[in-house]
Nucleic acid binder design. Structure first.
Lengths: 168, 168
DNA sequence: AAAGATTGAGGGCTCAATCTTA
DNA sequence: TAAGATTGAGCCCTCAATCTTT
């Protein structure tokens, strides 16, 4: 292949390939174990987490899409499917006739309560358990740096979840 | 939510959330810039890279699926779509009547030659340019460690998962 | 029977079009 | 007109079923 561009040297290429591979593996392990253990997908879990973060267990579609960093359209489709499974329901928004609320159901609460501990355990196992304190600190440093690159580049967009608690 | 499980502390939770976010951002930047500049998806590129790695520009379906860490089924579908676009073709395998070869086409070679330099530049920009040599070394260390966890666990690939999420 | 490969169904995501209310 | 939300088409991935060759 051609180059008058700064190519990657062997070390860099290996690092890059490993980065891609490790990420795929971690994502796939999380997805599979969560699905097997609870019948929820990662996406389901993320939706439920943001709903349980709200005291009333309900969030407007646009706000929820912002929290998830999803397109509204994607959320709308996903909520439809989750509604069919009884995990959430939709309600009209009292403040704004255009708005729609997504509300967690009793079934949805049971599902996330059942799923969360195992999921946290998996995150621990695939990430934290393998790393020494030094490595963890260093990884935090690296990720902060990389996150900053993107924050500087791509628009700000939102956020601020002040509610702590559950882990994605 | 309930716990008699080691939960994540604040630092760990922040690290985990940043990990997920950074990965999503990097993947999405790469995908977008590659698509805009060359009309290829990341998946297309990965297929083409492994084909150009072979001297004859051809790899058997199962081998290619192994290299990509994809399901054979996914690869089969993807190859069909790439074939329709003229990027690759299929050929019978001389050694094994059951086998099938995926072969890169002239168009496919042109496509990857056109796409690669820009892609490498993007990788450089979102990853290496942001990190000091120390940070890069440390990241390599961390990733090697994480990769090892998975290699130990999921070495034997694919078929016949008995459905237990057993932890070794 | 087992391995290589493909296929079809169904879920999931993106993009553009649409409908309703502000 | 713009914002909130949904819908439908089209592509992609997964899972199970299928077909062929070993």
């Amino acid at each position: 292949v051609s180059d008058d561009v700064a190519w990657l040297d062997d070390q860099e290429e290996r690092l890059w390939r490993t980065w891609v591979k490790v990420n795929a593996q971690i994502a796939s392990t999380l997805q599979r174990e969560l699905q097997d253990h609870s019948g929820l997908s990662i996406s389901d879990l993320e939706v439920l987490i943001h709903l349980t973060d709200d005291p009333g267990g309900q969030v407007r579609v646009t706000d929820l899409a912002g929290l998830l960093q999803w397109e509204r359209s994607r959320l709308s489709h996903h909520v439809r499917r989750m509604e069919r499974r009884g995990l959430v329901l939709r309600a009209e928004c009292p403040d704004d006739g255009r708005g729609a609320l997504v509300v967690i159901s009793v079934v949805g609460r049971k599902a996330i309560e059942h799923a969360a501990p195992g999921h946290v355990q998996t995150v621990r196992r695939v990430l934290f358990d393998a790393l020494s304190p030094d490595q963890t600190a260093c990884l935090a440093d690296v990720l902060a740096r990389l996150a900053a690159v993107h924050d500087r580049r791509s628009a700000p967009a939102v956020v601020a979840r002040t509610g702590e608690a559950v882990v994605v």
